[in-house]
C-alpha cells in the first residue's frame, strides 16, 4: 500500500462540523416527559428494547436485573428504560432545589459495547436539544464502582458546560464476575438534564408535561413536591427501625433460600430489598461507621450470590449457544 502526495497542498479542514440541532434555538425546550419519549424513540431506533422500570425500590438504574444480571454472559442485550431511583439520605423535605430522595435515571445497556457508542450517545444529546457547538461537552474520567454489587467499570462522567449529565461506563465486572463481553452503560440524570434544557434553577419548576388544549401543563412540583416532603419525613424520622432491621434479616434469609432453590431472579429481588432497607437504616442514622462496612459486605454477598446462581443456571445454555465461551 502506497500513497503519494504530489505536493503539499494547502492545508485546510475538509470535513464539516457536526450537524447542528435541527430546528434552531428558538424552539421551546422539551418537557420532562417529551425528553423521555425522545430518548425512547432514539434508542428504539438503534435496536434497543424499551423496557419498563423495575417494580421494586432501588438506588439506581444499575440495580434493575436487566442491567445487573443481563450484563453477565455472552448473549447480546440492548435495552433502554427509565428507572425511578430512591436515595433516602438525599431527601431534603422538598426544600432544596437540587436534591431529591426519589428521582429518575434513564438507563441504556448495549452489550457488547458498540464501537460507536460515544457517537450514538452524543446523537441522543443532540436529539433532546443540546448543540455541541454551543455547549461544551466533555468526557471526564470517572471510574465507576459499586461495592454493594461487587461491580466496577471504566468510563467518564459526561459534562455539559461543567455539569455532570451522564455516567458513561464500560462494565468490566459484575457481582465479582468478568463481563464477557463488556456492556456499555449510559445513565442519564433526567432531572439535571431537563433543568439544563429548560433553563430552570429549581427542580420543582420543571415542566413535566405541556398544556394541551384546555388541559393545563403539569410541573415536576405538582407531581413530586408532596412526595418529597412526606418521604423525607418518613425516611429520616418515622420509619420503624426494628421493622427495617427485621426486614433486612428476612430478605437476607429469603435471598439465600432462593439461591439454594435455584431461582436466582427471585433471590436477586431479595438482595435489592436488603440493599434498600440498609439505605433506609442509614437515613435513620442507626448504623454506626463500624456496622456500615459489615452491612455493605452482607448486601454484597447477596448480590454476588445471586449473580453466581444466575450464571450457574444459565451457563449450560450459554456455552451451548456460544461454543468456546468461558467465564
Amino acid at each position: 500500500m502506497r500513497r503519494r502526495w504530489a505536493n503539499a497542498a494547502a492545508i485546510f479542514c475538509t470535513c464539516e462540523g457536526i450537524a447542528a440541532v435541527a430546528d434552531g434555538a428558538d424552539k421551546t425546550p422539551l418537557s420532562f416527559q417529551d425528553m423521555i419519549l425522545t430518548l425512547h424513540a432514539y434508542w428504539a431506533a438503534r435496536g434497543c428494547a424499551i423496557l419498563q422500570p423495575y417494580d421494586m425500590r432501588v438506588g439506581a438504574g444499575t440495580f434493575h436485573p436487566s442491567t445487573t444480571l443481563r450484563s453477565l454472559g455472552p448473549e447480546p442485550w440492548n435495552v433502554a428504560y427509565v428507572q425511578p431511583s430512591r436515595r433516602p439520605t438525599d431527601g431534603r423535605y422538598g426544600e432544596n432545589p437540587n436534591r431529591l430522595q426519589h428521582y429518575y435515571q434513564y438507563q441504556v445497556i448495549l452489550k457488547p459495547s458498540p464501537a460507536d457508542l460515544q457517537e450514538q450517545y452524543l446523537g441522543s444529546l443532540a436529539a433532546i436539544g443540546i448543540d455541541p457547538l454551543l455547549h461544551d461537552i466533555r468526557f471526564v474520567e470517572d471510574d465507576w464502582e459499586s461495592p454493594t454489587l461487587g461491580a466496577w467499570g471504566l468510563g467518564w462522567e459526561v459534562w455539559c458546560d461543567g455539569m455532570e449529565v451522564t455516567q458513561f461506563t464500560y462494565f468490566q465486572q459484575m457481582g465479582g464476575f468478568d463481563c464477557k463481553p463488556v456492556a456499555g452503560e449510559l445513565t442519564y440524570g433526567l432531572e439535571r438534564l431537563a433543568m439544563y434544557i429548560q433553563n430552570v434553577d429549581n427542580v420543582y419548576d420543571l415542566r413535566f408535561s405541556d398544556a394541551v388544549g384546555d388541559v393545563a401543563a403539569v410541573s415536576y412540583g405538582d407531581v413530586f413536591l408532596e412526595n418529597e416532603k412526606q418521604f423525607s419525613k418518613w425516611n429520616f424520622e418515622v420509619a420503624d427501625t426494628d421493622t427495617l432491621f427485621a426486614g433486612f434479616k428476612a430478605a437476607e434469609a429469603e435471598c439465600n433460600r432462593a439461591i439454594e432453590a435455584g431461582v436466582p431472579l427471585a433471590a436477586y429481588d431479595q438482595a435489592i430489598e436488603a440493599s434498600h432497607l440498609f439505605n433506609l437504616l442509614q437515613a435513620r442514622g442507626v448504623i454506626s461507621v463500624q456496622e456500615r462496612a459489615n452491612y455493605m459486605a452482607r448486601v454484597r454477598d447477596l448480590a454476588k450470590g445471586s449473580c453466581k446462581a444466575w450464571i450457574d443456571s444459565q451457563s449450560e445454555r450459554w456455552t451451548a449457544k456460544y461454543p468456546g465461551w468461558m467465564l
Binding site: 468490566q172 463481563c179 463481553p181 463488556v182 456460544y322 465461551w325
Partner: peptide, 13 residues
C-alpha cells in the same frame, strides 16, 4: 495505571 476490555472481542479473556 488502569486498563479495560471492550466490544465484541471482550468475550474472550
Amino acid at each position: 495505571p488502569k486498563s479495560m476490555r471492550w466490544g465484541k472481542e471482550s468475550a474472550s479473556s
